[in-house]
Amino acid sequence: MLNGATDNSASVARFTVWQGWKRAVGASTTWLSLVFWVAVWFAVVVSLKIDQSLMPTPVKVVEQIAWLWSNQVGAGGLMVHILASLQRFIGGFVLAAFTGTMLGLWMGYSRRADMAINPVFELIRYIPPIAWAPFSILWFGASYGAQIFVIFISALPPILMNAHKAARGIKPGLINAALMMGASPTTILREVALPASLPFLFGGLRLGVATGWMALIAAELVASDGSRSGLGYLVLIGQQTLRPETTIAAMIVIGLFGAAFDIGLQLLQRRIIRW
């Protein structure tokens, strides 16, 4: 997560995996395999007579999603929790995207800024984002601020590092060539710098989405007493009330959103970056 952000091969891995998604969804073997695993789950629970308070059947989990939709748990129904999580996530992510891109580009542009900011950043980078959760509750309150801060601090490193790379990746030769042909600074920014840096920026944003979403769920687990809302809260409350069907239902929703964000960003990337 944290370290993966720095690695090119990690982003390559992500890319290939989601490329695989697209192909896989069309393949009948994929569906066969999923049906097989759900059947295994069902068969194990039923045949071993596993206690329903430990592991529910898939049927019960699906029923629970419908039940959560129309019933109140904690702050409200499923929609309330989804919206609470999304609100926190978008808040923290937008902050991180803005700060990270600006700082990263600045560090790529100015060597001094790089030398001054990088060491501080290296220090902070190694603290797992979730370790900030208790402090952020203290600083920003448990209902929204804490989660937003944890998302911010987790999504910042990959976004910043990729923005840094993006700025350094713009070849001076390209800019000189544009200058020689009499391009204005705005033209250079629009026609040279932006196209050259966008792929990196997008890579950073995608990693940021993945780490941010993970941090949100962790933060909602830790700050659950104070907020009583969010998908992470649902996951935890399912365990505390011995209703694993709630936990698993919430995990499914979390996974669906996580996948949707990544696929959405990829589609956006393909649309904007055509070269």
Binding site: A24, T30, I217, G238, Q240, M251
Partner: peptide, 24 residues
Amino acid sequence: RLFGPLIMILRPVPPPAWIPLAIL
């Protein structure tokens, strides 16, 4: 073909979300 789709489905679920189930 057997494990690929399973991993693709499980992968987007962040590891911390497994903590409550693990406790259970």
